[in-house]
Design a protein around this nucleic acid. Structure first.
Lengths: 200, 200
DNA sequence: ATCTCCGGGTGACAAGTGTCACCCAAGGGC
DNA sequence: GCCCTTGGGTGACACTTGTCACCCGGAGAT
């Protein structure tokens, strides 16, 4: 019997997946979590074989949870299950050593099969990921990311400078550099593009 | 037997809901669509009793579909099923005469019940909507919305002016007005806020 | 010990942004 | 006929943005 935890913030989808997986003879959903922090606690307590993990959840993202599980050398395997085929997310997930990365666009019947295959030591990845995203890695340095995040909140160059203890001019240099790395003409486009790719 | 169509772009959720609803004796899922245009065609062809409708879908949003069904005086009832409790969406849905508006955060078991109640002539609305959103109506005029949308794509005042056949100065007046209606300091914040509220 | 790279900084310029006061024409209401 | 609102416009001002050329000091490589 494979013991499963589900971490997913949309109650509807979470409940629906749990009901369906429970119908399978060899699968058992032992716990459900509605956010990342809860998921981590649940896995600690229940020691399931595998966890289906959404990425964008309140309190702690699925990627953070996966990273922390890796740190603690937890036995629980992780299958990321998300809407987004953002290259940045995928890259981070792989580095966190997850066993699977599936898109919510996959048909339901693939789900149980994927879980079984992962339990047999295989890796499961939705094909879109390999094509679309690989090798399109994050061109932004950590500092540039900091700047861009704040710009995304609508902060002005001066405000960003204050938040980051930099000078006003330096911030503008960073932004200028970001714009030409991303090949766009304004902060707004840069923020949109970076968010879209999961580069934050 | 209640005949149901499901319009939802996430295949996983769509499939899961279909399987679960089909387990109920009095419900039958007769069709599934992955985008708005497909949904409209499907409803035309199959004449189901009720349609579960996501909002943010490719090609045509669930709100557009609902509006067009109303225009054609279609018999099919509509239950909106979405992640977003955006006031603007809810308002539009009500105007389009939908019978239900549920959040994907609802537990699964509510779903079948909601469908039955709607078929009995009742209205079904997730409680969050009433509180959070009502009476927080869109403060933007149609023209202001046009301007803000383009600004959201990263267009400059001049570009927006050209797209809308306005003068550069007028565009800036609009933006200035938008900023103080929305009580924010920059276009970026304005775009974020408006998108978040569903005011587009 | 020198060289080069890198994070950070400066100053100047052109263009874009936000604000404000004010203008004009077309309707609507009365 | 008059008043008021509405959509659009102008011009000026101060500030912010984006770009560019160039400077500085510390760390690594050789």
């Amino acid at each position: 019997m494979i013991r499963i935890c589900i971490a997913e913030d949309q109650r509807l989808l979470r409940g629906a997946m749990a009901s369906l997986l429970d119908l399978e003879d060899d699968l058992e959903v032992v716990g459900e979590a509605g956010d990342g922090a809860e998921a981590l606690a649940l896995i600690d307590r229940l020691q399931p074989d595998v966890c289906l993990m959404d990425i964008e959840m309140p309190r702690k993202s699925g990627l953070e949870v996966a990273e922390q599980l890796k740190e603690r050398r937890a036995a629980c395997k992780v299958i990321i299950l998300t809407t987004f085929s953002r290259p940045g997310y995928f890259e981070r997930a792989v580095k966190a050593g997850v066993q699977g990365y599936l898109l919510k666009d996959e048909p339901v019947d693939k789900l149980a099969e994927a879980i079984r295959r992962v339990m047999n030591g295989r890796r499961e990845v939705s094909p879109e990921l390999i094509f679309g995203s690989l090798q399109e890695e994050n061109p932004l340095t950590p500092r540039e990311r900091d700047v861009l995040k704040l710009a995304g909140d609508g902060q002005t160059a001066n405000e960003i400078a204050a938040s980051l203890h930099l000078s006003h001019g330096t911030v503008r240099n960073y932004i200028s550099e970001i714009l030409n790395k991303l090949e766009v003409k304004s902060r707004i486009e840069a923020v949109r593009l970076a968010e879209d790719k999961g580069w934050l």
